[in-house]
Amino acid sequence: MHWILAPWPWYVSGPLIAFTMFLLLYMGKTFGMSSNLRTICTLLGAGKTARLFRFDWKSQRWNLLVMVGAAIGGFLASHYLSIHQAPKINEKTVQDLQKMGFESAGKTYVPTELYGSQVFSSPKMVAILFIGGLLVGFGSRYAGGCTSGHSISGISNLQLPSLIATIGFFIGGLIMVHFIFPYLFSL
C-alpha cells in the first residue's frame, strides 16, 4: 500500500492521464474539462445573453458527472490516499518562492499564502485568485479547450491547432511567472 500513499511518479501518472482520455473515448465522449464551465454558464441562465450558451445542457450531463467525480477524487486522494503530501519541488524553486514571501513552499500541497482560509481577509489575494480564474475561463473558451482538451486530447490526435494552443499556454505561463510575478509578490 505504501506506493499508493506516496506521491505518484510522473511516468506512472502520465500514462494514467492518457488512460482517462481512452476511457472517455471508449464511452463515446471526449476528454475536455473546460467545457463544463460553459455548461455551468448555461445552467445559470447565460443562454439568454449569448448564443454560445444556447444548447441542451443535458447533452453535457456526462461531463458534469466527470467534474463531480474529479472533486470526489480530490477528496479521496487527499484524505485517504496520502500522508500529508507536499510536492518535493526543486530546492532552488523553494528558495526563490520564499524570497517572494511563499513561506509554505516545499511544506504544503498548495501555497497557504494563496489557498489557506485566511486569504478571505486579503482583498489582494482574493483578487489574484479571481483574476486567475477569469483568465482561465476566458482563455480556455477562446482557445476552444484547455490542458485536457488541447494539450492531451488534441495533440494525441496530432491536431496542429492544439499544438498552437499549448504553445500559447506556455507563452502565457512564462510571461506570468517571469514578468508579472515579480510585481505581484515582491516584498
Binding site: L135, Y142, A143, A165
Partner: peptide, 15 residues
C-alpha cells in the same frame, strides 16, 4: 488558439 492560449496560460500560472 494563440491568443486564447496565452490568456489561458496567464491564468494557469497565476491560479
Amino acid at each position: 488558439y494563440l491568443i486564447g492560449g496565452i490568456v489561458f496560460g496567464l491564468g494557469w500560472a497565476l491560479a
